[in-house]
Design a protein around this nucleic acid. Sequence first.
DNA 1: TCGGCGCATTAACCTAGGTTAACGCCTCTC
DNA 2: GAGAGGCGTTAACCTAGGTTAATGCGCCGA
Lengths: 244, 244
Amino acid sequence: MVRCEDQGLKDDCFVRQYRQTTEWSVLSKDELRRIDEVAVCRIHKVGTDVFREGEPCRGIYYVRNGLVGVRKSDPEGNSVILWRLAFPGNTLGLRPLLAEESHRGGAEVLETSTICFVSVSVIRDVLKNSPALEHRFLQSAARALGDAEEAYFESVTQSVRTRLAHVLSIFKDHSGRTADDGSLVLDLPLTWRNISALIGVRPESMSRVIRKLDDEGWAHFSGRTVYVRDFDGLVGEIGPDRVV
Amino acid sequence: MVRCEDQGLKDDCFVRQYRQTTEWSVLSKDELRRIDEVAVCRIHKVGTDVFREGEPCRGIYYVRNGLVGVRKSDPEGNSVILWRLAFPGNTLGLRPLLAEESHRGGAEVLETSTICFVSVSVIRDVLKNSPALEHRFLQSAARALGDAEEAYFESVTQSVRTRLAHVLSIFKDHSGRTADDGSLVLDLPLTWRNISALIGVRPESMSRVIRKLDDEGWAHFSGRTVYVRDFDGLVGEIGPDRVV
DNA sequence: TCGGCGCATTAACCTAGGTTAACGCCTCTC
DNA sequence: GAGAGGCGTTAACCTAGGTTAATGCGCCGA
């Protein structure tokens, strides 16, 4: 609802990627600036929808800061899972745009987020003039496909315990810090409810697992803060790395 | 092991796609012919590997006829699932090629198959000269990604029963025929063991499910032949279509 | 200030599917 | 013709996780 300019924020989401190594970095500074010019950045409040499942794809959403989750629900609306998280720097809506499909999941703001929107027509135009960008997208789509296979495999193969360890390792890379005594402290940016949905289980089962993990001394859970004694031990004992 | 020419088969896998609507159809007849010229077609026997998990990707494999399955196993080698099937007309190895990764799954010949191999360098060369082909691949990769999400969702959400119904509907489209009395007859091209692996459960559980389905009168199972009384009823009752 | 709502937790209970083991059957090989 | 090995099935048993229900807590809005 709130435009970024109102907050004195400069809309330079894409130009800033010039220095980094995202897919967009293959574009020239000028091309990126041109995207920024037409991008519309807004601040979205927690709990609101960025887009809904089944809705036609109108463009892409660059998450500048905050946190957004992509949900999927069955036709009856029940059994919602959290398919993926979009952290700052991530882009939403690119898949349906490239596939020329509707959104297969709905995006919900999990933490107040600044999100920049760029319409389909702009992106298509950019792509038409930049085979290099298309090439990069193809490569990362192919990799994402491999990751999705891996996720499927994991869901069939691994226990909730193991999958939780996997999720924690994502947050470790992302928002983990080391305490004075050398142990790892995680301030989870998600409710346990959402973490359950991310793993695809009920909150009650999640609760059960974290209590057991706590009892066994692997980690201490207090609210959304997790104190991990020995992270490598946890991941190693509970489920070996599936970094392939 | 056996070259196609030895059998008097003409190597025209790719040229033939000119008339059809696959991704390759965007190429000119000449370009397709040029691929055929360097393609190596061989007949692979049941049980042999086309490529193995973790192996670097040397090129793509066009399945001309027969049936190939892509397996995934965990580091210890156990708990093998069947991730996808390659029917005649399908191509294997394109994902790792585009992602510039190694094979994340191993391909095993399930029915004696004629498979045409084209090396990485040829494909890369073709792609470099055809943005149109790259565009088509990007689109289908994006769609495949959506399908993989769906598969994940289904594995988390749906029962074995439902997932079996889903698999049967694949074979219905593929190798189903209608009996004189109007009922549907499927001659499954896979062992039940492999169908279990496709769904991600043990053969024993599979057995349990088909017996129940038989008892309840939905279908009759005899060896690898399935007689389905009322297919739409089965799919409708057991799990609504997830055609989104 | 109070009521209500959504998160989190616990406990009791239930069930789908994994595990183990045994058996029949087929095919291939020696 | 005998053995071996793979498939398919059944049965008995076990466990992870879903289901239901109850309780406490914190937050928000009236």
